[in-house]
């Protein structure tokens, strides 16, 4: 298990920051809570957590002047970043959640409301199985059932080249993506017990070799 990494966790007022901090600290990391652009450079990797609404998330990222610094760190300097749930969705070009919003456009794709219904009730809440479409360092050692906790009503439609794993919920839902140094998860590894912690540990291992 990797430890002693410095992980920058972006605080843009969106949801369960503490859960993410707890998980990384459990893995032996030192966490830096970044509210300003210059704080993004203080660690080995960046985590963009997020529970909330897309438009509000982008508004706060703008308001805190985080978008320019995020682009410099992730796109120009190639720093490893992991987006979780809404933190992955804001990496897309746009979303139609409560109006039309532009995202960070790191991934070619858009976020849209899932179809849902009486059987597949929305939000899609609970533990669901991954179908891994492309093996990646994130899944190392995760044998057997890869079941993780999801909680969302919107999902990412993106370039198939980004997709690492999907899940099924009345439709095929993109569950994990990668574009070079950029990783995104629709589910919550910080709340997915041992499997989730193992996956975060794999991200740390990857970040350690960059």
């Amino acid at each position: 298990m990797t430890n002693a990494k410095d992980i920058v966790i972006v605080d843009y007022g969106m949801g369960n920051l503490r859960s993410v901090v707890n998980a990384f600290e459990h893995l032996g990391c030192r966490t830096v809570i970044a509210r300003r652009g210059e704080e993004l450079d203080q660690g080995d990797a960046i985590v963009l957590p997020g529970v909330g609404a897309f438009g509000e998330a982008m508004r706060v990222l703008h308001e805190r002047d985080l978008i320019g610094p995020l682009n410099r760190a992730v796109i120009e300097r190639g720093r490893p970043i992991l987006g979780i749930c809404l933190g992955m969705q804001v990496m897309a070009e746009s979303s139609d959640e409560l109006g039309e919003h532009r995202g960070l456009a790191w991934l070619s794709g858009r976020v849209r409301r899932m179809s849902g219904g009486r059987v597949h009730r929305l939000p899609h809440v609970g533990w669901n199985a991954l179908m891994v479409t492309r093996e990646a360092p994130l899944f190392t050692g995760l044998d057997g059932e890869r079941v993780f906790y999801f909680n969302h009503s919107y999902s990412l439609d993106c370039d198939a080249g980004h997709v690492l794993a999907t899940t099924e919920y009345g439709e095929t839902v993109v569950a994990a993506v990668r574009a070079g140094n950029i990783f995104g998860l629709q589910f919550h590894p910080e709340r997915s017990q041992q499997g989730g912690l193992a996956l975060l540990g794999n991200f740390l291992d990857y970040a350690g070799h960059c």
Binding site: G15, L17, R18, S19, A23, H26, V51, Y149, N151, S192
Partner: peptide, 25 residues
């Protein structure tokens, strides 16, 4: 390390924020 929902005494959005900041999902 599983999702946690917290209730009781929540009166306004500031309480929601306090609860979420304490580790609720």
């Amino acid at each position: 390390f599983v999702p946690m929902t917290v209730g009781g005494g929540i009166q306004d959005v500031a309480d929601v924020e306090a609860v979420m900041r304490s580790g609720a999902d």
